Simulated scan of single mutants.
Amino acid sequence: MKYISILGATGSIGTQTLEVLRNSNNSFKLLGFSANKSYSEIINIINEFNPEHVAITDETTYQRVKDFCSKNNICIEVSYGIDGLNKVATLPVVNIVVTSIVGMIGLVPTINAIKAGKDIALANKETLVVGGKLVKAEAQKHNVKILPVDSEHGAIFQCLQGNKHSEVKKIILTASGGPFRGKTSEELKSITLKDALAHPKWTMGKKITIDSATLMNKGLEVIEAHWLFNMNYSDIDVVVHPESVIHSMVEYIDGSVMAQMAATDMKLPIQYAINYPNRQNSVVEYLDFCKIKSLTFENPDISTFKCLKLAYEAGEIGGTLPTILNGANEVAVDLFLNNKVSFLKIGDIIEECMNIFSYSNNFTINDILETDNKVRKYVYNKYGD
């Protein structure tokens, strides 16, 4: 049996991870999890999985959960804030930590989990985007596996199995194109929040759905792929594949291309990551190739969707520039979700921050956090009123 913790158990990836655990024939035991405000979901998880520890990042919800467990004599440790996240990430008996919490808040607990010798099933993009150099160094030092949960990186990971890294020519990340594929900048001026949240293929949280619409999600995945698979940015391609049947590909030096194909369902890469190197019976629908009418591919429009271009630029320059990119994006998306800025303004804000903030190639975790904080304050102060 494997013992598991989940950071962000009530989010999109977290809830699907719980579904995988329900179908795992008791091969996993959930020891700890974290959540934010979803009180009823937190109580349901406690009642169903009987974990030993829960961390709550919202103070009001923390107090409600603590009171509920006390009144009902539920034997569970309830903790609050970043200290609670670090506790869940480093529980002594845990073998693997699923890091599905969204945003920069996931960076420090993930690094602490690595230092504690826990394998990481990684769904938190920000961890590698802003701290890839530090994270990889710690993982190597502590002999920890970083197992990708994103469907694209999970696909590449599978396509690399049994092959030599020296024989890889390039990796190819597929993108659905989001809800605005083919639209011009002029058409995007009138985009509403409802339009942007209507993803054609994937059901995700709001922030990731907006990132998909701007193609920033794919840009962040490019930076992640650089760190996960030790590839130069010039050898990481993005291709738009609207059907989302092929989740990504690897091209080898002999011209062979290996593609991982499956239903559009995040439970598969989650299941593969937490069971690696083994496979379990499917928790998703099997593909029926006779029902697939066509597979189409096209180049991404980086002129209209400049977030992808900016991500490549930040990744190639490196240092703390990806932190500036990510921090500006997180705030800009939050402002868009709250109707403070327009859809196209998201890319403009990111570009502005990349131009005005200085970056460093020698940095610590504290440097990352300080840079992120400066960028966030700037964007909120300028555009949040």
Rank of each mutant, 00 (worst) to 15 (best):
T57E: 04
D58C: 07
D58E: 12
E59N: 08
Q63L: 15
R64F: 08
R64Q: 14
D67P: 06
F68I: 06
S70V: 09
S70D: 06
N72R: 14
N72G: 09
N72C: 12
N73F: 11
N73G: 05
I76F: 13
E77S: 14
E77Y: 08
V78P: 01
I82G: 07
I82L: 15
I82T: 13
D83G: 15
G84I: 11
G84Y: 04
N86T: 02
L91Q: 03
P92Q: 08
V94Y: 00
I96H: 06
V97M: 10
V97F: 03
V98R: 07
V98D: 04
S100Q: 07
I101C: 03
V102K: 04
G103V: 08
I105N: 04
I105A: 15
L107Y: 01
V108T: 12
N112D: 02
A113L: 03
K115H: 03
A116E: 05
A116F: 02
G117H: 07
K118E: 05
D119Q: 00
I120E: 04
A121E: 04
L122R: 00
A123D: 10
A123F: 09
K125A: 13
L128F: 04
L128T: 04
V129P: 02
V129R: 04
V130K: 06
V130W: 01
V130A: 15
G131H: 00
G131K: 00
G132S: 13
G132A: 11
G132P: 12
K133L: 12
L134T: 08
E138Y: 12
A139I: 06
A139G: 12
N143Y: 09
V144D: 01
K145I: 00
L147V: 10
P148S: 10
V149A: 08
S151G: 12
E152K: 06
E152I: 04
H153W: 08
A155I: 00
A155K: 01
A155Q: 02
I156F: 07
I156E: 09
C159H: 04
L160C: 10
L160K: 11
L160Q: 05
Q161K: 12
Q161T: 02
N163R: 15
S166T: 14
E167C: 09
V168E: 12
K170C: 14
I171C: 13
A175H: 08
A175E: 05
G178N: 10
P179D: 06
F180Q: 03
F180P: 01
F180G: 05
G182Y: 02
K183N: 10
S185G: 15
E186C: 07
E186Q: 14
L188T: 02
S190W: 00
T192N: 05
T192K: 11
K194G: 02
D195I: 06
A196V: 12
A196I: 09
L197H: 07
L197G: 14
L197Q: 10
A198V: 03
